[in-house]
Design a protein around this nucleic acid. Structure first.
Lengths: 138, 138
DNA sequence: TACGGATGTGCAACAATATTGCAATTCAGA
DNA sequence: TCTGAATTGCAATATTGTTGCACATCCGTA
């Protein structure tokens, strides 16, 4: 399993460092749940906060993770499933944000279709967030 | 026009204070564009920042405005068009966030339909954000 | 395997954003 | 006009995010 992490980093042309391996491992094990920045800090008590910021930024730029937006005003990150590259993200699945427990999960079966935007507008990315109550809170 | 502002506050059972009138007026004149918190601060140089936080929070709770999420990590607010109440928001229109100029506008003609969520999940609110380039930036 | 340049890390300092408590003020109904 | 309740403004503090720089680490190359 460590091997897969190394492979992921390698395929995205990223240097393997302990920090990156740990963060990536956490995101993989999160299994479709988006993790907020402060949460990652708590999970990695010995890690430097600033380095974590930069690690996540790098991951995002290289198409490894994507930011998930919700109304909790905490930046959340989730692993990209789709074929995201350095140049373009293709995360077109929806996310569900539970208002009770605050968790955000990926809903891979709900994808965003093409929307008819006004003339002159171009869409490069879409975010679809459903808010409500999740199964363990209802 | 001031009258309409008074009416809106009255119908939502909110006391009319100078701060609320000003903020509401700005949001009405924004005409479908979501305004970020720091932007509002700049527009109201004499206003107390903390009061602004509480004003917006109150407005949101009473169904007057809704938060708009995007990747700019600045909380944005827009006037509710639909029939939002104290108890439930019904803003099911999409928002467009321009990556160049940073503006966020409401796309009233794009509405979110009903999505098939996993068993046990209930959806009370949806957020659909399209990101890309707007007409004045392209 | 050792070298060296590019890349990443950790610290310090700082900026921006958000929350809480409390006393003083303002609002709106009686 | 009076009064209780809601709202405001200030202080203090917490949380989140950024930048610069010296030092450490990584990894392709020799």
């Amino acid at each position: 399993m460590d091997q897969s992490i190394v492979d992921i980093l390698k395929s995205h042309r990223l240097r393997r460092t302990p920090m990156r391996m740990e963060v990536l491992s956490l995101l993989i094990n999160a299994n479709g749940t988006a993790i907020a920045h402060p949460e990652l800090e708590r999970m990695l008590p010995n890690a430097d906060r600033i380095t974590l910021y930069r690690t996540l930024k790098t991951f995002e730029e290289k198409g490894l993770v994507h930011q998930v937006v919700d109304t909790s005003n905490a930046t959340k990150y989730a692993l990209c499933r789709d074929h995201c590259t350095e140049h373009q993200h293709h995360d077109d699945h929806a996310h569900f944000h539970c208002q009770d427990c605050g968790k955000t999960v990926c809903l891979d079966n709900i994808t965003t279709s093409n929307f008819q935007v006004p003339a002159g507008y171009t869409v490069s990315q879409t975010h679809l967030v459903l808010e409500g109550t999740c199964d363990s809170c209802s």
